[in-house]
Design a protein around this nucleic acid. Structure first.
Lengths: 205, 205
DNA sequence: TCTGCCCGTCCGAACGTTCGGTCGTGTAGA
DNA sequence: TCTACACGACCGAACGTTCGGACGGGCAGA
């Protein structure tokens, strides 16, 4: 019956890095909402105390900034890949849809948090601004594809952009890494639905 | 010049009802997020004091419960209309898409709040549960339409449901009553995109 | 028409709690 | 021994909520 009052060496140190702490924080933010998550909640999820968190990050808002930056950087990388592609705009559009889906799947928690930002703090407003620029460049590509005559002309390009990427972004509400299938299979399904529609063709076969 | 210390009869009473207060509250909740909105924020938006709010509602959570109930009741009404329709499931599906879009447009703030519920409080968990039942009955209809052979068979019905209504639900992120066009025009566009796709047909015409 | 009271509505001032964040100290591992 | 990491105690501010009381339009009784 050993000394119960001995220092608890049976519980090893957490030894977090900023990145591993960020990963936990983003999960909790997505579960409870950013504003609904207290630093005490984060501390318990990490298994350390509140004050220990401040050894790794300056503030709660910095956690948010780091997370949404990561998501935005990934998405912008896809955008710049697409924009340097030559050829028809509809190919750039397909690259954006497939790339966005890949980023959503690979960086799910970070993109989820980004898409839920509301603009309460400076960091959130900055994220919203970057998102708006991203969306504008998306719209540009869809507009070019429409001008090329590769999209039907009875749909407004801006509306098309919103519906198409609204569909892609809705993935953060239901995609699960364990049950969700591969990013490529998902992208195939989305492209089929978006380009050719749900309706069965050639019913007289 | 008149008595400055006179009671300020120039500022009339607000005379809120629970409903008119709810309308203001929901707008602020959508702007700042439910958890990000303090009762003081609500009070300022209403032009009355914090304590006055408690004359109309029991708690902050009751405001949330009233709001999401309204949205869910509207959506369930559409669902029950659809389910009593006889004939092909794809017609019931079209009724659901058009009805959902109409509800989103007509009850935009309430549906917006509903779609952002995270499950922190009892009221939120109850709303999530009702939403899940609603989604299941939607999936049922899509599954029937697929079984009828009216939807292409290379898309999983559950995935189709999520993408289709993910697209519809994304409207709360960008639809504006002033600039947004009518509910019927929007529904036409969505049905065209969903059923027939974006790709231009018959390019050799 | 005037008077007095009722009641729906609103207010100011507090309540106990929780918030994000700070500080000085302890300790495990190099 | 030195340093990175974590700890418990604590801070002022803001939180949701409560409370007793004040305001004023409308109505009954004179």
């Amino acid at each position: 019956m050993g000394a119960r009052e001995a220092t608890r060496t049976d519980v090893p140190r957490a030894n977090y890095t900023t990145q591993s702490l960020l990963a936990v924080a983003v999960e909790v933010f997505n579960l409870r909402g950013y504003d609904g998550t207290s630093m005490e909640d984060l501390a318990q999820a990490c298994g350390i105390t509140k004050s220990s968190i401040y050894h790794h990050v300056r503030s709660k808002e910095e956690l948010l900034r780091l997370a949404v930056s990561r998501a935005l950087d990934m998405l912008n990388a896809v955008l710049e890949e697409a924009e340097t592609r030559e050829g028809r705009a509809i190919d750039r559009l397909e690259h954006m849809v497939r790339g966005s889906i890949r980023v959503v799947v690979e960086e799910l928690p970070y993109v989820t948090l980004l898409l839920r930002v509301r603009g309460n703090t400076r960091a959130e407003q900055w994220a919203l601004q970057r998102r708006r620029e991203f969306d504008n460049r998306l719209s540009q590509i869809v507009g070019e594809a429409a001008a090329d005559g590769d999209l039907r002309d009875d749909l407004d390009p801006r509306l098309t952009t919103r519906l198409l990427f609204g569909m892609v972004n809705s993935m953060v509400e239901w995609y699960s890494p364990s049950r969700g299938g591969s990013s490529v299979d998902l992208a195939d399904s989305v492209m089929r639905l978006a380009l050719d529609g749900l309706r069965r063709r050639d019913p007289q076969g």
